[in-house]
């Protein structure tokens, strides 16, 4: 007796076989199925729509170029999440380094303004009444350490289980639990003054 998961997996392995055979239609199906997921995770990590699109494209290019090496030990979504998060984090780190460098050059008078200073991030899916709260929440998420950030985003935004997050990060389930615990503690510390002020304006 097949379960829904088995059927899902069966279709997935057919798709991977078609991708490995170099079928363009299979690649198109893959992109159209997962483009929103990939883009959304990239956007939440880098918090810049143009950069998120750039990362999403790079993710699919990597999939296209390396799918023949994919051994199907992990699920396709796990593999996609893994590529997306690592590319987005690398991009984000590079931007932070550029920003630090531009601050340094502005200090030494090579230019007079601080470059790469993105405005506050507003996720396009947030409702109007939550806009302010979510802006503060995303700002706090941006301050988290890389692995804590990925674990938190996959758990609370993508609603992935601890097991699935462990597969993406290639760590144990208990390590994921510890990452999530620390992420929540750090967020609570950062956000406590904001919620306190909201309660007693």
């Amino acid at each position: 007796m097949f379960t829904f998961n088995d059927i899902d997996r069966l279709q997935e392995s057919e798709l991977i076989a078609e991708l490995k055979a170099g079928r363009e239609s299979a690649f198109r199906i893959l992109v159209e199925t997962y483009q929103d997921k990939v883009y959304n995770i990239a956007l939440v990590i880098v918090q810049q729509p143009e950069e998120a699109e750039d990362i999403a494209q790079e993710v699919f290019i990597e999939v296209y170029q390396t799918v023949r090496q994919f051994r199907e030990e992990a699920r396709l979504t796990t593999w996609l999440y893994r590529i997306t998060t690592s590319k987005a984090l690398a991009h984000h780190r590079k931007r932070k380094a550029r920003k630090r460098f531009s601050i340094l050059t502005s200090l030494f008078g090579l230019n007079n303004e601080v470059l790469h200073h993105p405005p506050d991030f507003h996720h396009p899916g947030v409702s109007l009444e939550q806009k302010e709260e979510m802006k503060t929440l995303f700002k706090a998420i941006d301050q988290l350490a890389d692995t804590q950030k990925v674990a938190f985003i996959l758990h609370y935004i993508e609603e992935q289980s601890h097991r699935e997050i462990a597969d993406v990060l290639e760590v144990s389930v208990s390590a994921v639990e510890s990452l999530l615990h620390r992420a929540k503690q750090n967020l609570r510390k950062q956000l406590a003054p904001y919620y306190k002020e909201r309660r007693n304006p």
């Binding site: 992109v31 699109e53 979510m134």
Partner: peptide, 17 residues
């Protein structure tokens, strides 16, 4: 508060991605 993040509509890339 954290679970509210799950209610956000997923963002989509621009058309003709």
């Amino acid at each position: 508060r954290f679970r509210q993040l799950g209610n956000i509509e997923p963002a989509q890339p621009r058309p003709f991605f």
